[in-house]
Design a protein around this nucleic acid. Structure first.
Length: 377
DNA sequence: TCTGGGGTCCTAGGACCC
DNA sequence: TCTGGGGTCCTAGGACCC
């Protein structure tokens, strides 16, 4: 084997655990808020998402009563209704969810200044410099749960572990209203009986491949040799193998730094089949307006424009084009989209199910660039 | 059976450069 | 005339997450 072919499987740094991380996840967030606002829903199977009249769309969140029928988020609303005829469908009030989320995040933030909000209903807290050990972290978690319930009448699940990913897995392992602590020396023992799909990033497809190889639990994966894993599942497989064998796969310095947004997009589905090219262009144009507006608000310029088209048979195409330099105008996007759309112009408009526009390759506009732009105007 | 919307990350091939 | 090998950028598609 030449030097270039050698694979570096481990680095010493990986094996050190030096943090205590708490992960908080609100239980069935949207559904729980709706039930709180409308107590008649209490105890009834219900979902947020989907059109109650036409049953079109998908389940956004479902409560635990609905989950008993096999309903889960992402499932077509029509299928959910079939599984549970007495299912209550609520369209949802996202403004309210954002407000509630904001309140809760500010409560969470009281427990540590180092926090990472990871969506509407979840957050990570670095407790390393706040507590002296896992026992104290656990007491803090109980306090946090009580605090959230007292203020917003909502329950959450919490995981505490030495890394973000393990804290999340710990929390996911006992829902709703759970509290699970996994100390460094307990990691492999804790993971071994868990289904492989508890690992974030392993979805339906990957689980299927693992299943074909007789891997069902984290313990099954841990037993294989790392060379074999690397050969069969590549880089990501090796990372997963390290995780289930109790190695630290997270770099401490990257832990809580917030990352820049990489793209801005909007897409819309046509639920009726009678759309014309005029309708389609109206949707595209409104998408262009909102994304360029968002970019302006965030002081961002962009280089790549992507058009997305989905047909009734669900076949989906994306076509993109990168501009020679960073741009900010609606006009630029519109021109590119027009050209990208040409390819599909011979298709009947009513066969189109979805259109979307995305800008990516985005960059913050510096004051320098603004001055230059003014100068060349 | 019918499949939302806003994202991220990964892979793989091709063009092009040195 | 035939042809290495590494690097980067672009494009298209797909898995996955909330």
């Amino acid at each position: 084997m030449t030097l270039a072919n050698q694979v570096v499987y481990f680095s010493e740094k990986e094996q050190v655990f030096d943090s205590i991380i708490l992960y908080m996840d609100l239980d069935a967030f949207f559904a729980s808020v709706e039930i709180r606002e409308n107590p008649q829903l209490e105890g009834k199977p219900m979902i947020v998402g989907g059109n109650p009249n036409t049953k079109q769309g998908v389940v956004s969140t479902c409560n635990y009563e609905a989950r008993k029928y096999g309903i889960h988020s992402g499932m077509p609303a029509s299928q959910a209704a079939r599984l549970c005829p007495e299912l209550v469908m609520v369209r949802g009030s996202h403004k309210l969810y954002s407000k509630v989320s904001e309140n809760i995040m500010s409560i969470v933030n009281h427990y540590s200044p180092i926090m990472k909000v990871a969506g509407n209903d979840e957050a990570y807290l670095d407790l390393t410099d706040v507590v002296s050990d896992y026992e104290e972290a656990k007491r803090l978690a109980v306090e946090l749960k009580d605090d959230i319930y007292a203020c917003e009448k909502l329950t959450c699940s919490i995981g505490i572990a030495p890394t973000k990913i393990l804290a999340k897995i710990a929390s996911d392992s006992d829902k709703p209203d759970g509290l699970v602590v996994v100390k460094p020396l307990e990691i492999t023992e804790f993971l071994a009986p868990q289904k492989i799909t508890i690992i974030p990033g392993i979805g339906k497809k990957s689980a299927e491949i693992y299943k074909k190889n007789n891997i069902f639990t984290c313990g099954d994966l841990a037993k294989l040799s790392h060379q074999l894993i690397h050969q069969k599942w590549g880089k990501y497989g090796l990372k997963t193998w390290k995780l289930v064998n109790g190695y630290n796969t997270e770099k401490t310095e990257e832990k809580f730094t917030s990352r820049e947004r990489k793209s801005i997009s909007e897409e819309r589905t046509f639920f009726n089949k009678y759309s014309s090219w005029t309708d389609i262009w109206i949707r595209i144009d409104s998408a262009i307006k909102t994304i360029v507006e968002t970019a302006k608000d965030k002081n961002m310029s962009f280089r790549t424009v992507t058009l997305k088209i989905r047909f009734q048979d669900f076949e989906t195409f994306t076509r993109s084009h990168s501009l020679p330099c960073f741009e900010t105008s609606e006009k630029q996007v519109r021109e590119v989209v027009k050209i990208l759309l040409e390819e599909f112009k011979n298709k009947p408009a009513n066969e189109i199910r979805l259109v979307g526009v995305k800008i990516s390759n985005i960059r913050k506009i510096t004051d320098n660039q603004k001055t230059l732009a003014q100068f060349f105007k």
